[in-house]
């Protein structure tokens, strides 16, 4: 089994909410000071899914990530968790893309990797929450796809996928090669082992530029966008809260119940 896993470096979603700031002129999030970026938590589930398949069947896992300013210690985490290779699409031309240009670049890179049976992605990334790059890669490569997997079993050139639904899950059989997006119901991703961390230290990522994957820089990154972000802003929450008072905590609690009743919420 040859598996490709798409990962991404993101601002830590566990960073203190007060540290979240937007630069209004560029419509971009200012990385919080002192909080290092991490591998997107959803992508970690995809890595874990790949590792479980490899544990069962053997094979090779290639992690791939698109972005600039990717910190080596951060972006090497898939290697320290147990993936075999790491490919980075690292070039200014790839930057500032939207889901379309990102999916296109990743699809072309995966085509170059070739010889894959399965492509895994997180169900979305925790920064832009777009939730469409996986499906996009599948469509560009002409592959079948299943989204929101909580379990993947491989037998005889097919995957049996438990796909999370509103009231449980459905079992979907899909022909390989295929693309599957993985949801958090899969279960906790493993921690890197010391051995894994040491191995990752020695391993250098493979860096590809647009020319390496045969794409015109005008089709990727900012130039390849199909959408435009007009505004990025923080919803205003301050000042809306009404703190319910009371002589004691018990009294405040009773007043809260009365208040909710009055507001017809209870």
């Amino acid at each position: 089994m040859n598996i490709v896993v798409c990962v991404k470096q993101v601002i830590d979603p566990e960073a203190p909410p007060a540290s979240f700031k937007i630069d209004a002129t560029s419509n971009k999030v200012v990385p919080p000071a002192g909080v290092p970026p991490i591998i997107d938590p959803y992508a970690e589930y995809a890595i874990e899914a790949a590792l479980r398949i490899k544990d069962a069947l053997g094979g090779k896992i290639t992690a791939i990530s698109l972005g600039i300013n990717q910190l080596r210690d951060v972006i090497k985490k898939p290697l320290s968790m147990g993936t075999d290779e790491l490919v980075l699409l690292e070039d200014e031309a790839f930057a500032e893309g939207d889901s379309w240009s990102t999916a296109y670049a990743l699809a072309m890179a995966i085509k170059k990797i070739g010889d894959y049976d399965l492509i895994l992605c997180g169900r979305e990334a925790s920064d832009w929450n777009a939730g469409q790059v996986g499906s996009g890669i599948a469509e560009i490569l002409g592959l079948p796809s299943v989204t929101l997997a909580q379990k993947i079993d491989i037998t005889d050139g097919k995957a049996r996928v438990e796909r999370v639904t509103a009231d449980g899950y459905e079992v979907v059989e899909i022909l390989l090669p295929a693309l599957i997006t993985v949801s958090n119901e899969l279960g906790e991703p493993r921690y890197p082992t010391i051995k894994g961390i040491m191995a990752a230290k020695k391993k250098e990522p493979i860096i590809w530029k647009p020319a390496d994957i045969g794409v015109d820089p005008a089709q990727v990154g900012a130039a390849g966008r199909r959408t435009k972000t007009l505004k990025l802003y923080q919803p205003v929450h301050e000042g809306e809260v009404e703190v319910i008072e009371g002589e004691t905590a018990e009294e405040a609690a009773a007043n809260l119940a009365l208040k909710l009743r009055e507001a017809k919420i209870l």
Binding site: P16, V241, E242, V243, I244, A253, L260, L266
Partner: peptide, 29 residues
């Protein structure tokens, strides 16, 4: 942060707030 994001808030130890809130809700309902 949750207090800032809330519409209503009670500031206090939940061990005191919840029993009192629960019994008042029960009474109202």
């Amino acid at each position: 942060n949750i207090v800032k994001r809330a519409r209503f808030a009670v500031v206090g130890d939940w061990r005191k707030v919840i029993p009192s809130f629960t019994s008042k809700v029960k009474e109202l309902l």
